[in-house]
Design a protein around this nucleic acid. Structure first.
Length: 320
DNA sequence: TATTCGTGGTA
DNA sequence: TTACCAAGAAT
């Protein structure tokens, strides 16, 4: 959960996850949709699929995790960082997990000025040597946690508190007066804008028509409002309505209720939201798709983007 | 090696 | 507002 995600954002998800799946075998035997529903809103949904797959592998092997970096790397969703973190924290192996915090501390400590992401391997190599110390080797878990906390609390991305840093005297970045500017990054490309359309169909009971998204790709395995693919060009209303969900002898009066802006990692999405009320869902629509009656239910795998679209439709009084 | 993957908080 | 960033992994 903590991969690329803040502790603050993770905590409530972590609590609910452990309530639902007290141990790895419970997670292994859970249906995937239940896992995705409890992950909904946290993002990077491949992590949920990988975690579930990982639990199944571990359960197959008697419910015991590998206790070496090499063994952990074999598991789905566990890469170099997570393997080292588990090995050090759970099994006391003398390795240094290199996350964004450790990367930043290392780049500053050794005044490494080559920009990320090209310098990533060199920084990681340097970081591996940080525990070349008798006390560090003796307590791999504490040393890893201490590095995280140094990066999160003292050696922060902006305005680092160098005067409070226990490593100030050894820090080449501080000595050269460039610590706060490290690690340097290659300039990032501008985020393009893409356009989508989604349809919020509501029945008399307040049910909303949902479809399951493909397993792979963006929001993979999650539920969503129906609509055509996202593309670079905007969708004129007439063209958008060609993609509205429909059924034989079903007359639907669509109304554009507004636009949702949603920022993904590598593009910004503008979604035109259309809403309509019908009396009851035809079987041809409900049969292969899903309907929810309460958006606040925690058993629906609805990502934040789709939640925002439904909220917009709700604000348009389509549910009244 | 470079892309693709979410979301929310903060300056 | 925009831009950046967070206990990265898979392809």
């Amino acid at each position: 959960m903590l991969q690329q995600t803040t502790v603050t954002a993770v905590i409530p998800y972590f609590e609910r996850f452990l309530d639902a799946f007290p141990d790895v075998t419970a997670l292994a035997r859970a249906p995937q949709d239940r896992v995705m529903a409890l992950w909904a809103g946290l993002g990077y949904y491949a992590r949920a699929r990988n975690l579930h797959a990982c639990a199944r592998v571990v359960a197959e092997n008697g419910g015991r995790f590998p206790d070496t970096v090499a063994g952990l790397l074999e598991l789905p969703g566990i890469g170099a960082y997570t393997a080292a973190a588990i090995a050090a924290i759970a099994f006391g192996r003398p390795v240094v997990p290199v996350d964004g915090n450790v990367e930043r501390v290392t780049a500053r400590l050794f005044a490494m000025t080559d920009p990320l992401p090209g310098s990533r391997k060199a920084i990681a190599r340097q970081a591996m040597t940080l525990n070349a110390d008798r006390q560090a080797i003796a307590r791999p878990s504490d040393f890893a946690q201490a590095l995280f906390d140094l990066g999160a609390g003292i050696c922060t991305p902006r305005a680092p508190a160098c005067v409070l840093c226990p490593w100030r005297g050894a820090c080449a970045g501080n000595r050269q007066g460039i610590a706060a500017s490290l690690p340097r990054r290659a300039p990032r490309v501008a985020r393009p804008v893409r356009h989508g359309v989604h349809f919020c169909m509501v029945d008399a009971a307040g049910g909303i028509l949902l479809v399951r998204r493909p397993e792979k790709g963006l929001l993979g395995g999650m539920m969503g409002l129906p609509g055509p693919h996202w593309r670079d060009a905007p969708w004129p209303q007439a063209e958008a309505l060609d993609h509205a969900p429909t059924a034989p002898r079903l007359r639907v009066n669509w109304r554009r209720v507004g636009q949702v802006k949603h920022v993904f990692t590598h593009f910004t999405l503008l979604v035109d939201v259309y809403a309509a009320r019908i009396s009851t869902f035809p079987n041809s629509l409900v049969g292969t798709e899903g309907v929810i009656h309460d958006m606040d239910r925690d058993d629906v795998a609805l990502p934040s983007l789709m939640r925002k679209c439904v909220e917009l439709a709700r604000d348009s009084n389509i549910f009244d």
